[in-house]
Design a protein around this nucleic acid. Structure first.
Lengths: 342, 342
DNA sequence: TTGTAGGCGTTATCAT
DNA sequence: ATGATAACGCCTACAA
């Protein structure tokens, strides 16, 4: 049957513990012994049994990614997963996906429950979980290790952060530089920190451009295509509609574009549109979408790396600021000469 | 510390084995005893230790999804993952993602290696892995349980299948019904079965419409946006360009649309475009893309369910045929009156 | 219907 | 630098 550590030990003429030392890169093994063990293991095609390892070592070698269920299929999550897998792979850890419902009665309990059941050695949290102070506090209480992927840095100690507010500000700078004065914003969903930061950045940008904040140009949206359509309808129905719309994310921006086209508007000649996230779709639509790139794959990888470091020894692992990038594509252009009237 | 099965047994005044019976839904437990055990477990917040369970039971309660690394972030995979997670969740199994390189020197070895290392109780394979007879044969040899998600049914015993050939035929039927005679195809990448079936279906459709097969209207493409652009360039440069292009998948179709727009063509007035897969993007582009819906989420769920059934008892589990659906949207319309000349 | 004993394959502890 | 032995928490096999 399958080779066990005992078989390897016998074949190499050493004790089980020595084989264990070799496989776990522990010190105190003579080079020569190490080689003998490695050769024996190779010959027997030995692989440590993960369950036994976990049971005896009291670790699961498991990291779980906690994200909001409704966004299970988003490109944002997908890319984070890819990065996370890379990091786990190289550290001989496994990644586990935990789509949970943030909006449920008690999401804190559902996270606790997930921990109790699967016993991961650590968690990676993305918004909105990553921004929930109550949840983080509870995890601290439980002594659970976790990393957050988010924009905010307060409350966060391990993971990645990205200055969404500054990024959103640059979006408005870009539009203002193109001559736009009526710049609208389809805001994100309420429970997301992203909503707040992107909205703040939007206002920062307006201020820098000397444009007065106009309440009617900011509509509650969401992170979905449908939200973008609804937001665009509302904005384009205004007596004095915007010449540029900054949507909270790419999906929503696609909705805005869709509605604009349905009304026969040209992009960017009649309306400029900007998204956020730089999902693959943003390159595939026509005209291609100006947006803010978040290095999601890197974020996933870095968060996992920092988390694993903090698992190895508490106190290790830090919050890594990752760069964003304004991707200027075809969906933004000079403001039309005159504001359109309907 | 954490409650063990022994603690529950003591508190309930029964043996460990009885507790085990209750938690594994085994027969031969009096209702009254079951209740006592459940109450005790509840009180102690007992959760079985997965590692111990796996070690003693010689099962990992793990299912791994094997897919081609380059497509790690595709919407197709993402949706399958979501469905698979649903099924696993309800059966108390865990899902593990295994992006492997199909194009690598020996992908069969890399799958074997993955099995040896993580010891999943079963595998779910998607194309191109699902279509590799050599791999399936080797897995049979090893006695590994697996389910495939694919179009082909030969070689497949457990999993899902979808008649891609018939679906592709219907795409051409749809275009022919709109009056198109010069219908082109941007084919899929060579190692994918998808390429073959969709191409066959394309020819079926032409035959039914009484259109002669024209070699110059079929270009080698791929499943990427870039492949679509390249394919469209080649096709639209023809002296007698097509009035409709059927791309091997949605990403590629988006590339076709992009290139068409770059040349000032209108869709669908000047050119009709069809994709395959019905990814979220196909709804978000403008005009929205006519495509073939594959119920990916269902496929993932069903494949996992069938796999788990076949794990429970060999011989169980079957190949479930899932339905496709032609989603007629805005990217297809009547053929232009005269074929365009350049 | 319920219980007892032994073992799953590894790591931790403590010797040597 | 290396080894012997006892956990780790559960399940299987068999017994009662």
């Amino acid at each position: 049957m399958r080779a066990r550590i005992e078989d390897v030990a016998e074949k190499a003429g050493v004790s089980m513990k020595t084989v264990s030392r070799v496989f776990n890169h522990e010190p105190n093994v003579r080079e020569k012994t190490r080689l003998r063990v490695e050769r024996a293991a190779q010959a027997l095609n030995y692989r440590p049994n993960p369950s036994a390892r976990s049971l005896a070592g009291n670790r699961s070698y498991l990291v779980s990614l906690v994200y909001d269920d409704p966004f299970a299929g988003s490109a944002y999550i997908m890319e984070i997963i890819v990065g996370m897998l890379q990091a786990c792979e190289s550290m001989r850890y496994s990644a586990m996906l935990r789509p949970l419902e943030f909006s449920s009665a008690d999401h804190v309990a559902s996270v606790e429950n997930s921990i109790a059941q699967y016993r991961p050695d650590g968690l990676i949290l993305v918004p909105p979980f990553a921004d929930d102070a109550k949840l983080l506090h509870r995890l601290d209480e439980l002594g659970a290790r976790y990393a957050t992927i988010s924009a905010k840095s307060k409350d966060a100690r391990v993971g990645t952060s990205l200055d969404e507010r500054k990024a959103a500000g640059e979006v408005v700078d870009h539009l203002a530089a193109l001559g736009h004065r009526r710049i609208a914003h389809v805001a994100g969903p309420a429970p997301h920190g992203g909503r707040v930061w992107r909205l703040s950045g939007y206002r920062d940008g307006l201020r820098r451009a000397g444009i007065a904040y106009d309440d009617s140009l900011v509509v509650d949206g969401g992170f979905s295509f449908e939200a973008g359509i609804a937001g665009a309808k509302q904005l384009l129905d205004l007596d004095d509609p915007p010449t540029a719309i900054f949507a909270a994310n790419d999906d929503s921006a696609c909705g805005v574009m869709h509605e604009a086209f349905e009304r026969g508007l040209r992009i960017p000649q009649d309306l400029s549109v900007v998204g956020f996230d730089d999902t693959p779709t943003s390159r595939q639509v026509w005209p291609s979408l100006t947006t803010v790139r978040q290095p999601c794959r890197e974020m996933g990888r870095i968060a996992a790396e920092q988390l694993l470091a903090s698992i190895r020894d508490a106190g290790a692992g830090s919050l890594v600021r990752v760069p964003y990038e304004l991707m200027v594509r075809q969906s933004t252009g000079p403001a039309p000469a005159r504001t359109k009237r309907r």
